[in-house]
């Protein structure tokens, strides 16, 4: 018998007694005091992320004046490093700032969902030193529960909630941003 069939038959033979029905998932209210962007920004700040409201074209210059290599995956911000689906991840290691668009945000946690379609090469979101994420103010889900109703989880091969930057406190609990991934994450709310 294959390992698969051995495991499945053992699982079947040892099935716990009782009906154990699957519960419905209720909706738990969350009050964002009517200002969802402010709620989101507060959550994000608590997770070590930053947010910036302004014209998209000004953002990189204002936030990263020292940056040399900029890979932009959004049309409204110009970069100087082209990326295609064929770009090898290891060739992205010198990027200072990567600019990507979020599929949506989540106010409860200050998260942004990044999907493979928008990232082109997934690794860019981790190999760049800094990450700038464009999020439209109207595109924020209130709760994690709402977030998981979204179609991206059924369509994308890769979808990742980023909530602030890479962080560690593995040594004596001291918080350090930029453990392995990006050193900072900034959410840009574009003004037209």
């Amino acid at each position: 018998m294959s390992s698969r069939d051995t495991i499945l038959s053992a699982v079947r033979a040892n099935r716990p007694a009782g009906p154990h029905p699957l519960p419905e998932l209720p909706i738990f209210p969350l009050d964002d005091s009517g200002d969802r962007v402010a709620f989101f920004r507060q959550s994000l700040e608590g997770m070590g992320g930053r947010s910036w409201i302004g014209k998209a074209v000004d953002a990189v210059g204002a936030l990263f004046p020292q940056a040399k290599v900029i890979a932009s995956l959004v049309p409204e911000i110009a970069g100087n490093r082209d990326m295609t689906a064929e770009t090898r991840p290891r060739d992205l290691a010198d990027i200072d700032v990567a600019v990507v668009r979020a599929a949506f945000g989540v106010a409860e946690t200050g998260s942004v969902l990044l999907i493979d379609q928008a990232l082109v090469v997934n690794a860019v979101a981790y190999l760049a030193q800094h990450l700038l994420v464009v999020l439209e103010p109207w595109n924020i889900m209130l709760t994690m529960k709402e977030a998981y109703q979204r179609p991206e989880f059924h369509q994308q091969r890769y979808a990742s909630f980023h909530t602030g930057p890479s962080a560690t406190a593995d040594i004596e609990g001291i918080l350090i941003h930029g453990a392995q991934g990006v050193r900072s994450l900034t959410v840009l709310f574009p003004e037209s």
Partner: peptide, 11 residues
């Protein structure tokens, strides 16, 4: 409230 990264691998 959440880990910094929550990643969903579907393919």
């Amino acid at each position: 409230p959440i880990t910094q990264y929550t990643s969903h691998f579907r393919g």
